[in-house]
């Protein structure tokens, strides 16, 4: 089985449009196991029930933003190893630096093409 058939990815975004776009793109890449949730809290809950290899999360979300989610993931020994790609509307240096600090694996600036999404995932997990 190839990586794309085994990898489990979770998409976290408060906008259903973005969730739809990303899951649609992942589907086209042949990634089979994709979960999508609408905020950080749900992401943590979903992860507890069904761990994933990689989380692709928006930065700007209500209640818990992407960096808070990353922080929460990294501060727990059982979730800290998950891959994390942050999607931002603006690649503010402050945000990216904090992300880097917290161990974000990659980031992607909006808007992005499916190909850019793919490259950014592959840079982290290897060839899909």
């Amino acid at each position: 089985m190839s990586l794309r058939e085994q990898i489990r990815i979770m998409v976290v975004d408060d906008m259903s449009t973005s969730r739809g776009l990303i899951t649609q793109a992942l589907d086209e890449f042949g990634v089979r196991d994709v979960t999508a949730v609408s905020d950080g809290t749900s992401a943590l809950e979903a992860f507890q029930k069904y761990p994933v290899h990689l989380i692709i999360s928006d930065y700007n979300m209500p209640n818990m933003d992407g960096l808070h989610l990353l922080h929460a993931l990294r501060s727990n020994e059982h979730t800290r190893n998950v891959g994390f790609i942050l999607i931002t509307g603006r690649a503010d240096r402050a945000v990216i630096d904090s992300g880097k600090q917290l161990g974000m694996n990659n980031f992607l600036k909006k808007p992005f093409t499916p190909q850019e999404l793919k490259s950014s995932i592959e840079a982290v997990v290897g060839r899909l």
Binding site: L3, Q6, G83, I96, M104, N106, S120, G126
Partner: peptide
């Protein structure tokens, strides 16, 4: 803004049991 090209992506060590053995990471 940070240029995405300046960012060094970090690999995830994935565990995919079917590939050769239980704990090998993916080659990439």
């Amino acid at each position: 803004e940070v240029d995405p090209a300046d960012f060094q992506p970090m690999g995830v060590s994935m565990t995919l049991p079917d590939v050769g053995g239980a704990t090998t990471g993916s080659p990439g």
